[in-house]
Amino acid sequence: MRDLRLSLNQTQKVRLEAALEELQELSSSAASAIVTVAETIPVNHEDGVLKGHGTTELNGEVVATLCGVVERVNKLVYVRALRARYKPEVGDIIVGRVVEIAPKRWRIEINFSQDAILMLSAMNLPDGIQRRRTAVDELNMRSIFGENDVVSAEVRGLQHDGSLQLQARSQKYGKLERGQLITVSPYLVKRRKQHFHHLEQYGIDLVLGCNGFIWVGEHVEAQENAMTEDQESETEENKKPNKKSMTLEEQERTYTPFQTRQNICRIANAVRVLSALGFCLTVEVIIDTAEASASLNIDIKDMLGAEFYVLTAEREVQRRKSIKKGG
């Protein structure tokens, strides 16, 4: 397995194999049709066929161009790729990293085949007033997002030239601070109603970006005046360029309690374990894994050890079994 470079002892190896085998048995009843590159997809030509993504035609046959699962919707036949780069859809919530500030726009790395573009006009200004963007706003872009900042946004659409446009027209989008960014394969994150989660018991925010970028950070209250405060402090900073000497007030604002930091690490490690095992990432499973580690008195650093991997795999088997019984 990809990220699993573990030194398992003999019993752990056997347990992991047994767990994975059981998972296979559990899912085999679903009988999902898996194809590989250049494999013919059986179709009934009499009904008429619409070839979707990941397929091509060769000598009158429908042939897969990707490895993945064949999906059929009425006449449409397409291949859903497993491991691949992110494929954007309008309305997806994504997390990305700013790589460049260009005139009137930010270029954001989001694990797509190109960098996405966030226009200055496609986001709310910090003061919250709707107005035309002036040249002054353009010069102050760096005070909103600088290079290497992690931001959350929404996919606005694909331009006809193939470039991807983002928007951040809500208070919930914007810069993400004081936390960890974890990158996983995008197929592990399912599209859901909710992608922003506030885990109250831990006091942290969890953002599951559809592009496989996952943010775990300290909880921040999304409110109008919080943003204006930022703006004020920004102007203060501009007055005295010596950024190193933070005021006491500012230190207090950016201070993260030790307990919260531990919680962030615990959740982040839970995500790492689950993604290394290739399990689907939902907020319930992540919390469940983190709680299991806490209740078993496993140290945060030991969560990435062999024993917890095996335990997580076994727990997943139990979870899926109970779902199956229930359904």
């Binding site: 899912s27 679903a30 898996i34 590989t36 494999e39 197929y187 399990f279 779902i323």
Partner: peptide, 17 residues
């Protein structure tokens, strides 16, 4: 072809429903 099929199967069943 066999290696790819084996790998895709594994990814799919690990991901689950």
């Amino acid at each position: 072809q066999e290696v790819l099929l084996e790998n895709s199967k594994k990814l799919e069943y690990q991901r689950g429903p």
